[in-house]
Design a protein around this nucleic acid. Sequence first.
DNA 1: ATCTATGTGACATTTTCCTGACAAAAGTAC
DNA 2: GTACTTTTGTCAGGAAAATGTCACATAGAT
Lengths: 222, 222
Amino acid sequence: MSKLLLVEDEPSVRMGLRLSLSKAGHQVLEAATASEGWEKIGSADLVILDWMLPDEPGVRLLERLRRDGRYENLPVLMLTARASEGDRVEGLTRGADDYLTKPFSTPELIARVQALLRRVGKSGRLERGALSLDLERHQAFLDGHALDLTRREFDLLAFLARHPGRVYTREELLERVWGQEFLGTARTVDQHVAQLRDKLNEDPKAPRFLETLRGVGYRFRE
Amino acid sequence: MSKLLLVEDEPSVRMGLRLSLSKAGHQVLEAATASEGWEKIGSADLVILDWMLPDEPGVRLLERLRRDGRYENLPVLMLTARASEGDRVEGLTRGADDYLTKPFSTPELIARVQALLRRVGKSGRLERGALSLDLERHQAFLDGHALDLTRREFDLLAFLARHPGRVYTREELLERVWGQEFLGTARTVDQHVAQLRDKLNEDPKAPRFLETLRGVGYRFRE
DNA sequence: ATCTATGTGACATTTTCCTGACAAAAGTAC
DNA sequence: GTACTTTTGTCAGGAAAATGTCACATAGAT
């Protein structure tokens, strides 16, 4: 149930992978070129990146991505047609989290995707003081008591809690929690934050977890 | 009555084990190569894995399997022809749950298989409050009364009950209960949950066992 | 041939989500 | 400090989405 960005120029490969990956329970965003990939990268939880693309090499996109602070923890899985050891190492050292050499089996790809998602904490637990998030169970606990959160509330809280201290604008949150196809107003974020604060017993003026940064956005307190 | 995947390239060994294991009440899936094994692994409850295979070493398959979150609890029993201590240790530390050195006796193998199945709760009984599941007979009891569940109903209930508290999306359930080759709609899961709730005398709004997590999926109550 | 289990589409119901309006608070300029 | 602007918090109702329910088609078993 994560958002995967598939950057691959060959339409047939893309279609095949889209089917398998969505069957594995993921949402698949697609891009045929590096620049298209760059545009859609904002809302991805993981990137599957082909080595060769029509406009520029996948590694180049990878480099750009790693230089951008927003994506430093975004897992990237490279697909390469070359089988030589040298290339593999190069791809990895330049910042990919894993790689696969074509031809590869689809189950293998799915396995690696799962492994990477697990590694970056798309599953597992998040402990933030009195607040504890069980990502597998979609269950949040405050001081040991289970909270009754809706899907959006949980997703929003989990997203913010995953990067404590970092501020996100409403636009960023809409893109990364709601999805890039969502065209909503910024008020929507406020509404959900308010809802969360209510359920977390927070005073908006002295929040334990969800801080407002006037003129900027929200952040999870460190 | 569990599904065992036997990955072994020697046809005569395979046939012998198939006979003994199915006589012991199991369903036996067979694979002659590691890649064939990987394809069929989705529906297995336990894997019997030969050390040497024509395409790649069994351990390699094992590694891949352990990296994949879906199979982290899938028991694997390694068969090895080499008797040296070093190998045994290597196989075990790399993630096998048990091993046997060829030549081994068939009763011994069956015993170990049973032991492993019991350990992961694929055999024996599952007690969850007033609900009791006899996994061998596919029979469920609620407050001592036998329930008349169909195969799918029982499988679904048993799967959810095996991991209480954890949420599963409809896609995950379709894959793990129905099998990965099944191409059905998500509505199907709802239908079976409803059926189960009916037989369990549950109010969907205040379920004793099967909880709905809107926007996410279902889980067995802890 | 009949019966049972299973899967699916249509429809009803419930819950969640989003939005627009307004209130409250914070920041700015005077 | 006051008046004004901008931003955020809050509320409530309707829209949209998700789930529950029912009825039926199909396939497989007895």
